[in-house]
């Protein structure tokens, strides 16, 4: 893991960016700050490491009770879902685009809410 002299990095499986494994606050990253894609390395149903290893794409933004944002990822191969907290230097444009995505494609007419 982290050595005092070696910089701990990983390469994003989607955009190829080489990323420092720790965010500015010191917590460990689990997704690329540029494209927000992740990798399926942890098995959340049974626990422990996962044998999948496929790319995980961000599908939505969730808000915790504390008001912090988390990104929900879905594995493109086995459809498993995970959530991970947003780091300080994550791409704001992609975060905001995902947050407003449901409102851009509503399944019902939003005009009805004006009368409520």
């Amino acid at each position: 893991m982290t050595d005092n002299f070696l910089i701990d990095t990983f390469t994003c499986v989607w955009c190829g960016l080489t990323v420092h494994a720790r965010a500015a606050g010191g917590q460990r990253r689990n997704h690329c700050p540029s494209c927000l894609h992740s990798r399926h390395v942890h098995d959340h149903v049974e626990g422990g490491p996962s044998t999948c290893g496929a790319r995980m794409s961000p599908i939505s933004i969730a808000v915790l009770r504390t008001g912090d944002w988390t990104v929900v990822h879905r594995c493109v191969r086995c459809d498993e879902l995970t959530s991970s907290p947003v780091a300080e230097d994550d791409n704001r444009l992609i975060l905001m685009r995902m947050a407003v995505r449901p409102l851009a494609q509503p399944p019902f007419p939003l005009e009805a809410f004006g009368d409520l």
Partner: peptide
Amino acid sequence: LSVSVRPDGEWLLVHECLSCGELSANRI
């Protein structure tokens, strides 16, 4: 927990288990 959108515009509801923290998605 949150709402996600498929590329074709279908909304998905993401649920989180309050007991074990597992996530699941279901079309509305």
